[in-house]
Design a protein around this nucleic acid. Structure first.
Length: 581
RNA sequence: CGGGAUGUAGCGCAGCUUGGUAGCGCGCGCCGUUUGGGGCGGUGAGGUCGCAGGUUCGAAUCCUGUCAUCCCGACCA
């Protein structure tokens, strides 16, 4: 491709609406253009990269025997009504009506369509196992699209689904997909982690996410030096062993006026009740947080969560624990309904299903028998000291709702956890029979009996992958594509206006194309200085740059490696060999 | 949905405080010059100043409303 013909205009400045590197560079280098928030057009350069990502995915999916199909993005309402997702998806679903007034939607995901397709055509265990996939455009009307194509409202996704008669078959399909994903992400070339994910509302059992490690990622995950990694939601707390409490004095209530917050309480304790061994700390206090759970049937249930005073409740972790109920704040009217609760001084005495309030009381796993706490006395201006778990109070159970912090021990004993950010690139999980049951996907088994099919669901963000690669594959000059994804193999520059140099570059171009290289030839002459061409080449990010210039009279051209910056003169006759290395 | 910011030429921005012929850089066309790191000079094309209403002799500028976009958070297979 000649630069003088390529549909491209590079920009000297970063677009004002771009924040993250991939967004800035993909727009500046002419790969994509914004059409609407979260909606982008792919230009020739971008489309070539996208196609290469798709090719890798197709090869690996085909390799595990999955077959490609393609569903429409425009879908009728009915299948989504059957699974209740027409309602559940809420405002995130793009809805529209056809001329007859029938409801339609732009598909956010295709579990229903795949399930119904298999139901349409297959009816015997002999037809299984089966894996189908598609690479297709999805639509989700995100409340806040951001970061260019990293999180759009229209995006390209590979989604596949496995169909098996039994759990062993599902497990095998899951492992096959997992292995394929490992190969896909290895080939895409970025650093990633596989984390245990919360399968949450989707109702599956096993579920893992592939996260590209990147500070611009939206998902926080944890990992340990010993190799543990997980979503924050999936982290389980390492509970200490119970400790004996024989020598601990009896709990005693003390006056602690004006100490509604943990900080004010700790200050007061150190001033009024100093410890012999050390100062009081926030972690010595037991904080009791109240929320309201709204259950799917609409009922509201108060819930108290007891946790060490130096930790906050992590809203996401809490919601994962109480799903499908939703978490709402505990409001003034709720306090009014429970006069036994003294705001700011709530203690275990007023909590628990056996207590006067009857409010369910769940505690952090760290609060084991024998641990001693300072906590509210359920009296205005008073706290209890030396309150011992298991002796002075009990809870209705434990809950994983406290925030996870760097330095916390990994659940598998593999060392302290580190917090990092990642971009969700792939998600695999064992759906089980949820969709097959609602949509009545059954096959006859060996005994002629109807059995419900079990399914797996597996996704890769294809357009997101282009941006995710760009997130790390760049430097201060521009993009630096891995060879397998680059829009071209070679970026050829003619530097100079001398007729022999120009003619020479033309010849090199023809030769390289003849040898099978995909070459971008910057053949611009006239006012386009060599500096402009070098800058554009670095911005575009083709891995190898060949310059035909002043060395040409001596029969050499310059070969530059975009990623290392290394440049060397190569005799014209050796060029093809050098490029093949 | 909460908080913050911004809307002026294709892109990046100034002008607004203090109302008076709409500017700069890049990009684009043409002429000349230049050719190994976004060169120089000249000359052009291109703008309902987000939109609506108001104040005023006169509004990009002041007032009111509204829409949009971006960022943080909430949300999000």
């Amino acid at each position: 491709m000649r630069m003088t013909r390529l549909f491209l205009r590079t920009l000297r400045d970063d677009p004002a609406d771009a924040e993250v590197p991939s967004h800035k560079l993909l727009v500046r280098a002419g790969y994509v253009r914004r059409v609407a928030p979260g909606v982008y057009s792919w230009l020739p350069l971008g489309l070539k990269v996208l196609a290469k990502v798709e090719r890798i995915i197709r090869e690996e999916m085909d390799e595990i025997g999955a077959q490609e199909v393609r569903f429409p993005a425009l879908l009728p309402r009915e299948p989504y009504e059957a699974t209740n997702r027409w309602t559940e998806y809420g405002p995130n679903l793009f809805r529209l009506k056809d001329r007859k007034g029938n409801d339609m939607l732009l598909g956010p995901t295709h579990e229903e369509m795949f399930t119904l397709l298999v139901k349409d055509l297959y009816s015997s265990y002999k037809d299984l196992p089966l894996s189908l996939y598609q690479i297709q455009t999805k639509y989700r009307d995100e409340a806040r699209p951001r970061a260019g194509i990293l999180r759009g409202r229209e995006f390209i996704m590979k989604d596949s689904y496995s169909f098996d008669v039994d759990d062993a078959g599902l497990e095998a399909a899951y492992q096959a997909h997992r292995a394929a994903y490992v190969r896909i992400f290895d080939r895409l070339g970025f650093e990633y982690v596989i984390v245990k994910a919360d399968s949450g509302a989707m109702g599956g059992s096993a579920s893992e996410e592939f996260l590209a490690v990147s500070p611009t990622g939206e998902d926080t995950f944890v990992r340990s030096p010993g190799g543990y990694s997980a979503n924050v939601e999936a982290v389980t707390t390492v509970a200490p062993d119970p400790v004996p409490y024989d020598g601990i004095p009896a709990a005693h209530a003390e006056q602690t006026p004006d100490t509604p917050t943990i900080d004010s309480l700790v200050d007061h304790l150190n001033a009024a009740f100093p410890r012999d061994d050390r100062s009081w700390e926030a972690g010595d206090t037991l904080k009791n947080v109240l929320v309201i759970l709204r259950h799917p049937d609409g009922t509201r249930e108060p819930l108290a969560i007891g946790l060490p005073g130096d930790r906050e409740v992590d809203a996401k972790r809490l919601e994962t624990q109480v799903a499908p109920a939703e978490v709402e704040p505990f409001e003034q009217k709720d306090f009014a309904a429970h006069p036994g609760l003294v705001k700011g001084y709530i203690g275990p005495g007023a909590l628990g299903s056996e207590s006067t309030t009857g409010i369910r009381y769940l505690t952090d796993p760290r609060i084991v028998d024998g641990t001693r706490w300072v906590t509210g006395a359920d009296v205005q201006g008073s706290h209890v000291i030396d309150l011992v778990a298991g002796r002075d109070f009990t809870s209705d159970g434990t809950i994983e709702a406290a925030e996870v912090r760097a330095g916390d021990p990994a659940p598998d004993g593999s060392g302290p956890l580190e917090l990092a950010r990642g971009i969700e690139m792939g998600h695999i999980f064992q759906l089980g029979r949820k969709y097959a049951e609602v949509l009545d996907l059954k096959v006859l088994d060996q005994n002629g009996k109807l059995v419900t099919v079990t399914m797996g669901s597996y996704g890769v963000g294809v357009s997101r992958a282009v941006a995710a690669v760009a997130e790390y594959a760049h430097d201060e000059s521009g993009l630096v594509w891995p060879r397998e994804l680059a829009p071209f193999d070679v970026h050829l520059i003619v530097a100079g206006k001398d007729e022999t140099v120009v003619a020479g570059a033309e010849q090199v171009y023809a030769d390289l194309v003849g040898e099978g290289f995909d070459v971008l030839f910057d053949d611009r002459l006239g006012k386009v200085s060599p500096g402009v061409k070098f800058k554009d080449a670095e911005l575009i990010g083709v891995p190898t740059i060949v310059v035909v210039g002043k060395g040409f009279v001596d029969g050499v051209v310059e070969v530059k490696d975009r990623s290392t910056g290394e440049r060397r003169d190569v005799p014209l006759v050796d060029l093809v060999t050098a490029l093949r290395d």
